[in-house]
């Protein structure tokens, strides 16, 4: 059994977001990065399947040099090998180009199961996972809160609105995009981190995957023209002052609302 986990490295959730010079993305220098939160749950799910039986877990990430750190973390947590698509030409790609690259890696690996996140914390696209499945020609389910081996595939519980769940059976090979919270994610142990140093990271470019002409800004069909601070509406009345002053205004308001 082989499991491919697709992970994106994203700005840390508490990172300062300053807009870059040409206004199309944030400034990346000087900020911390981390594994996309949804993808940590996907990796954990893969490692649990491995713990419960026999599986090879391969992690793949597309991004610049900094991504090595995310891959090392994943290897430290228990993944067996990593593929790093590192190519300057990929910068500015849209979700579809990223999906093409991941599907090309998946074609080389031919996994039984592909695990991904529902959404990236930076672009919030919720796009890449179903696209990879379509390009691979395999069934998929997104927003999955539970996945269990059943018959010749996986029984998945997809989260719907308001906490309802939709149960769907997928025959393998299949792709599952997980929702946050489907498991509790482990930390890399010291032993794991040491062992990870010897695990291989295979680096590739878009050309190696036969996709040199389909990536980057020029090939993107959906392109960010500009990012900016959302227009401020009426907004809240901000109470200023010392903690005592703030608190006395809050108490006044709560009295006025008749809640005291």
């Amino acid at each position: 059994m082989k499991i491919l986990v697709c992970m994106k490295q994203v700005p840390h959730q508490d990172a300062r977001l300053d807009i870059d010079g040409d206004g199309t993305w944030i400034k990346e220098d000087g900020i911390k990065f981390e594994i996309n939160s949804y993808d940590t749950f996907a990796l954990e799910e893969a490692l649990r399947i491995k713990d419960a039986g026999e599986a090879e877990v391969v992690v793949v990430s597309i991004g610049p040099d900094r991504v090595t750190q995310a891959l090392r973390t994943a290897l430290g947590m228990g993944a067996d090998r990593a593929v790093h698509v590192n190519d300057d030409a990929v910068a500015g790609s849209d979700a579809l180009a990223i999906a093409k690259l991941l599907a090309a890696v998946a074609k080389e690996e031919s996994p039984d199961l592909v695990l991904m996140g529902l959404m990236s914390d930076d672009g919030n696209a919720t796009a890449v996972a179903p696209m990879v499945a379509e390009l691979m020609g395999i069934p998929s389910a997104t927003g999955v809160m539970k996945a269990e081996a059943e018959g010749d595939g996986y029984r998945c519980e997809r989260e719907l609105e308001g906490g309802a769940l939709e149960v769907v059976d997928l025959p393998t090979p299949c792709l599952i995009a997980v929702q946050s919270g489907l498991n509790q994610v482990r930390y890399a142990s010291l032993k794991g981190i040491m062992a990870a140093k010897k695990k291989p990271i295979d680096t590739k470019g878009a050309g190696d995957l036969g996709l040199a002409d389909q990536v980057g800004t020029a090939a993107a069909k959906a392109q960010i023209e500009k990012i900016y601070q959302p227009a401020k509406g009426e907004g809240a009345e901000i109470i200023e002052g010392s903690t005592d002053e703030v608190v006395s205004q809050l108490v006044g308001k709560i009295k006025e609302l008749g809640l005291l």
């Binding site: 944030i26 919030n124 069909k221 023209e225």
Partner: peptide, 29 residues
């Protein structure tokens, strides 16, 4: 082209939130 979770269309571009609501993006197809 794929653009997700847009909340407006203005001057030929789709408007959507990024970074979990902290920034907006204009996307052209």
């Amino acid at each position: 082209a794929f653009v997700s979770d847009v909340f407006n269309f203005e001057d030929g571009a789709y408007i959507r939130r990024v970074f979990n609501g902290k920034l907006d993006a204009r996307v052209k197809v």
